[in-house]
Design a protein around this nucleic acid. Sequence first.
RNA 1: GGCGCCGUAGCCAAGUGGUAAGGCAGAGGACUGCAAAUCCUCGAUCGUCGGUUCGACUCCGACCGGCGCCUCCA
Length: 498
Amino acid sequence: MGLHFHNTLTRRLEPFESVEAGKAGVYACGPTIYGHAHIGNFRTFMFYDLVHRVLEWRGYEVRFVMNFTDVDDKTIRAARAKEMTLDEYTAPFAEAMLGESDALGIRRADLYPRATVYVDRMIDLIQRLLDRGFAYATDDGSVWYDISSFEAYGRLSGRDLEQGRPGERVAEDEYAKDDARDFALWKGVKREDEEVGAAWDAPWGRGRPGWHIECSAMALAEIGDTLDLHLGGEDLIFPHHEDEIAQSEGATGKPFSRVWLHAKHLRVEGEKMSKSAGNFVTVRELLDEGVSPAALRHLLLSAHYRSELNFTRAGLQASARAVARLLDFEARLLSHPEAPAIGDRGTGSGDAEGEAGRGIRDAADRAIEAFTAALLDDLNVAGALAALFVFVNEANRRLDAALGDPSHGLPADALEAARAALGEMDGVLGILEVGRRSRSVDAELSAWVEERIRARAHARADRDWSEADRIRDELTAAGVVLEDSATGTRWKKLSEEG
RNA sequence: GGCGCCGUAGCCAAGUGGUAAGGCAGAGGACUGCAAAUCCUCGAUCGUCGGUUCGACUCCGACCGGCGCCUCCA
């Protein structure tokens, strides 16, 4: 089975077929940079990362674009409050978000367009919509999209226009649009906009772009008339993405995106996250308080993207333990002594090493098979993680068995197969990739630890247990944990996990 | 009111019309000088009630409970 996605547009599982074979143009709705991104934003960004990595893993040449919304009501309001220009105010938040993404191992997009840089494209797009009869201007210099002109309006979100309840919010509507449900393509200038530099000249009057047109303009400009995938949080289905479709297709006459994927929202300790509830968590805060980035990554990845994810401290702790298990396994696999490859010793049938080698290699093959099947099926990460952990267990068992053998070694090619499988799986999950950073040490510490371990080995050889334990305590105090085994002593640096 | 989602062991979380992956936590055991790591053993009949079926947790219905969207919130 090839790669399949649950397309919001059709509400069905569909095989993924990009416009151009082997290539994938992806547009992901990024954050509005008026503050630090919160854990919920990152649940969505982690989902983007999974899509990104899976496509690359499957061999697609990916063009991944994620925008930053830097001009809208919130950024303008916040910039005014600080008496800064829009750019002065928003730029640091974009930088911060990228830094946090890096910490969590989220792959960089190929491009991060910012709305203010694409205003010319937005104006062009609006002009085309006016020319083609999808939009109309009003006296205040605003331009509106006439949703009655776009037949497919409502298809993405599954709503029937006739069943809407026009009128309900008209009273609070300060604009002169024809229909309460028409949305702004361009907002006539206001003094507040000018104060922060959020105003541009357009043929129909000075003003600023509406939110929805920003994404249409950037996506069409940077990917093309038809995207292969458009990603976002579930809250964007309506009206944001519905409006993007209306605008883009109104202007180009072509399908805007083949597939739409939406991530469900995250909850915090079982509650909806909100500032008023006092459970508003930013990744910045979590990282500052020493939470393990790999644990955070594991937790954000642990549930299917179309399921609600509950972010809890207990869950973070559990994820930290799971990550530690993976890191310990990797260290063990890398340090395990090698014996001659199965292929170098004749048939090998009946010999213990050969059998252990075949066992671990078969386990690696089964793991990759199950892992792949899970991810190709609409990104079932939980299933993929299960395949990985089954592999960890099976491989650990083989490694244990090898220790009972005089040579302790496993065939080099079998170990290589196991390492390759682990590497392939983590290339998609990125958990070890991030976790290793927390365990990395400098040469100085490393040399000291190695010296201490040698001293302890001598003490142990002399059966001087109190000295051996004293040295181990010394290392523990430095955050170093030892693991004795028949093949020597491994050590690891513990980070604040959880 | 409209549209839609969810309810699987203490917690997190997959999944299939034929008797339930995985992670964390817990108990016991093996290994270890002691640890650490690892391994082994132990736990759920899948919200409730009906229906369809040879057989349902998986299909249908009702109900109970939780939740999302319905104009700018990932």
